[in-house]
Design a binder for these strands. Structure first.
Lengths: 147, 147
DNA sequence: TTGAAAATATTGAATATTCAACAATTGAAG
DNA sequence: CTTCAATTGTTGAATATTCAATATTTTCAA
């Protein structure tokens, strides 16, 4: 009897593929909601991180919002033009730039958050409370174990 | 006592964010392995799907490998240049193009699969057998419930 | 049977991302 | 101190992706 070889297993059984597929779908749904305000998902993330009111350096932000540095720089350029955020040179380390959220940014951030919460609630309904929290727990632990 | 509002919850608690983060990390690891053969993750997916030896239309492929049509067309153009795959007009529906894997593609696909299996095994080690299969189960069910 | 609508794939222009090089500042070793 | 390496952020060119428009074929209703 031939033992089932992982090499022949369909792509749909690979964790990497399942993650990509789930991420694509959930992201698509979130995108759809945020498009009501004409804002890409990454900008929601940026505003959300900055809405603690503190200054965050570009490097810190890039890590937090899952973008690499040049991409973030250019996205921030756009957001500065839209007066959603602003740059301040870090007085303690003048290599760094500290990003802050503006008042306009705060207003937008609130709207985006409620759209995002809408989605989470929609997931909770169709997918279930228990599965959702279990999935979150497992994802956190996967991320931890990868560092 | 103020009830904790989801709007103020950190971004790291959102399912959409956790999925994006996990996907990014796992994908990065896979990319690293596949780069040994100089092949992007999407091409591995394409070769894997085509390695059943059947012809697959572009639309079918695009769905399976999570790319939209124009992006797939251009990636396939490159793979045709590299003689990894080839196009055949579908005789039953001449709007369609059927993609097939070449012999060279099959050889490469084997190498890529073992690199991908390496990664899965590495995940199993650091993350655990049980967590992995449970996570896969939950992801599949999330994907199902989103359609 | 004909003609309009739908399905399929590709193209080219517009947009976005990435890579490598750069500039500025800080840290740290001698 | 001084100098050299490391850190931080940005830029420009190269690459990749996306959107809208197109061409071709099929479907289906009249």
């Amino acid at each position: 009897m031939a033992k089932p070889s992982k090499e022949n297993s369909p792509i749909t059984e690979h964790l990497a593929y399942l993650l990509a597929q789930a991420n694509r779908e959930i992201n698509r749904q979130l995108e759809l909601r945020l498009s009501k305000e004409g804002v890409p998902v990454e900008q929601w993330r940026i505003l959300k991180v900055l809405s603690d009111g503190n200054g965050h350096s570009m490097g810190e932000l890039a890590d937090a919002v899952l973008l690499n540095h040049p991409t973030l720089t250019k996205m921030i350029d756009r957001m500065v033009s839209d007066t959603l955020v602003y740059r301040v040179q870090d007085p303690n380390d003048r290599r760094k730039v500290l990003m802050f959220i503006s008042d306009r940014g705060k207003v937008l951030s609130k709207k985006l958050n409620s759209l995002a919460v809408d989605q989470e609630e929609h997931i909770l309904e169709s997918y279930g409370d228990k599965s959702t929290s279990e999935l979150k727990r497992l994802l956190e632990s996967l991320i931890d174990s990868s560092n």
